[in-house]
Design a protein around this nucleic acid. Structure first.
Lengths: 330, 330
DNA sequence: ATGAAAGCGCTAACAG
DNA sequence: CTGTTAGCGCTTTCAT
């Protein structure tokens, strides 16, 4: 019994008589044999490890990031890969280190900015990568993200169809826009485009993720634009506070104020009332990202930008716009 | 110039004339040379990778888990190690896989239960591990965690010193107790011990992490025990809702109700009013965990249970108990 | 269908 | 202080 035979049984890379295969598998079981990962990687030039870069930047909602991460890890395991965790403070040098040392076979990069400094580097590195998020120049890159432009459009269309003609986008914290984070910008652009197309009034404002910020932002918004009857929220952590603030301001949801969120379905369903929303399919995106990488590793994949279609679910937080004269002053 | 010389320059494992050292370093720079991680691992029997096991269980507060994770990654990098991310659904088999294949050198295990099924396995595995959290039987293990027993005691003592004699512990979601998660149990035990020692009335209740749950739980609590003037909260996501609920119930903080939290300092300071709290030093714990592992890898470390002392900071959410007759009914 | 043998790119004895 | 050399435990040609 040669070592190579065992190797071939384990990898299935050449045909083996069922008799020897059984003998080998039995022995593997009995001895609890596990191939040494380093030796395997050295010989095969494949570590079977993916790097996952999670930048913990200000204003990002951590639970959503973890949903992505979990999905990436779970899917990677399905394809017999492990995941190395890189935080972004290592930035470019971290990517160079893990790829040039062949610690990993491929890279998953999250939270991409419009002009991300890591993008030029990714083009040069000798290994495949997938971005979760879409930079300005996607040339030669593989990217995937929700179609946030369409997501915002669908929110605007849904509200406009219900008769609302003055609505606002309550966006991410301003730091996220300042960094030119792709998803926030694309949502903003979609909101503006749809508002213009439908010929209604649209106001946009960032919002920090504290109760007081929500109180102030919404207070000022409704004071400056008292006719607003619809809100689109792209900011998970403020959803709870926002509902409180609207209650406190005497605006019933949805009778006085229709509310749409761009967030995970379970978050939308957990609120009272349940929120009409465009879902943020973190699990699906993470899975797709890994599958694209695996395809590339096997030589089959090709660079492409994948926009996951936006899917709107109407729930209890939106309804027809109130007649203007029906609203009484507080 | 022999290959080994380069190796020794890079590792510093034997003295090198400054002249050759400089020449080597120059060449390394010029060529952008990076040692191949697999080859190095195979030859040295060290992968320089730590596994981090993050179980994403129900009721756990994700941002806190990420603080631990970030601290672990950052510290690991300081000691020239990388971090492999394992989610817990792989459970025992994941630990076996990465350790027996020598993918990693050591393990960091988070969110440990009192009778954690992974603990017996950790004792057997041929590599060092550190638990963040403390199981029932710590024999032969290295564990680290905040001294939650003392944390709860300090909260009770602080409130009792202020004249409160009827207080409640608003705990984690019930799933966390049901799993027998160590930190929740130790806090509960500390609360009960201190209440008894001080001869005051203490009520304990779990609390789910939704607005409605907080409203109901606190409403019922104060209805059943109207004399309660102090609250200890161990449940980060409900802190915001809790302040709202108390406002809504007409209980001013701290005049009518003193509030103590066991949470990260930045969370306590972000509230209005700022919360008196015992800090949960996630960064310190993550760092200590990695340093303990590194020490073990270098042969120096020894098994031990480390309880990080509880540190209480009095802020604006606690004050002397109101005179019983001063409280008016709503 | 199996075996033999040559590396993969390093590190760590072992010499000098 | 530096060079030589023997592996580390696999995978993968190349033989048979």
């Amino acid at each position: 019994m040669a070592a190579s035979t065992v190797s071939y049984v384990l990898s299935g890379k050449r045909s083996i008589s069922s008799e020897t295969r059984d003998r080998v598998q039995e022995a593997v079981q009995a001895l609890g044999y596990r191939p040494n990962a380093s030796a395997r990687a050295l010989a095969s030039n494949r570590s079977n490890v993916l790097a996952l870069v999670i930048p913990l930047r200000a204003g990002m909602h951590v639970p959503v990031l973890m949903q992505f991460a979990t999905s990436v890890v779970t899917t990677a395991r399905r394809y017999d890969h492990d995941v190395l965790l890189l935080t972004a403070d290592e930035g470019r040098s971290g990517l160079e280190r893990v790829s040039q040392s062949a610690l990993v076979d491929a890279l998953v990069v999250m939270d991409v900015e419009l002009h991300d400094e890591r993008v030029p580097l990714l083009r040069e590195l000798p290994m495949p990568s997938v971005l979760i998020g879409i930079p300005a120049d996607t040339d030669g890159l593989t990217c995937i993200d929700l179609d946030f432009f369409a997501a915002a459009e669908q929110c605007v269309d849904h509200l406009t169809d219900l008769g609302h003609h003055s609505i606002a986008l309550l966006g991410t914290p301003s730091a996220v826009y300042a960094r030119q984070t792709g998803f926030a910008h694309r949502t903003l652009a979609g909101f503006q485009a749809a508002v213009e197309r439908r010929g209604i009034v649209g106001i946009e404002t960032p919002c920090e993720a504290t109760f007081d910020a929500v109180l102030n932002t919404v207070g000022e918004l409704l004071e400056a634009h008292p006719g607003i009857t619809g809100l689109v929220v792209q900011n998970e952590p403020i959803i709870g506070p926002l509902l409180d603030v609207l209650r406190k301001l005497g605006r019933r949801v949805p009778e006085d104020m229709s509310l749409m969120a761009i967030c995970a379905d379970d978050v939308a369903e957990r609120q009272v009332p349940q929120l009409s929303s465009v879902t943020l399919p973190a699990e699906e995106i993470g899975q797709h990202a890994v599958e694209a990488l695996i395809a590339k590793l096997e030589g089959g994949g090709t660079s492409a930008v994948t926009l996951v279609p936006a899917r709107l679910t109407a729930r209890a937080s939106t309804c027809a716009a109130p007649e203007p004269q029906e609203r009484t002053t507080a």
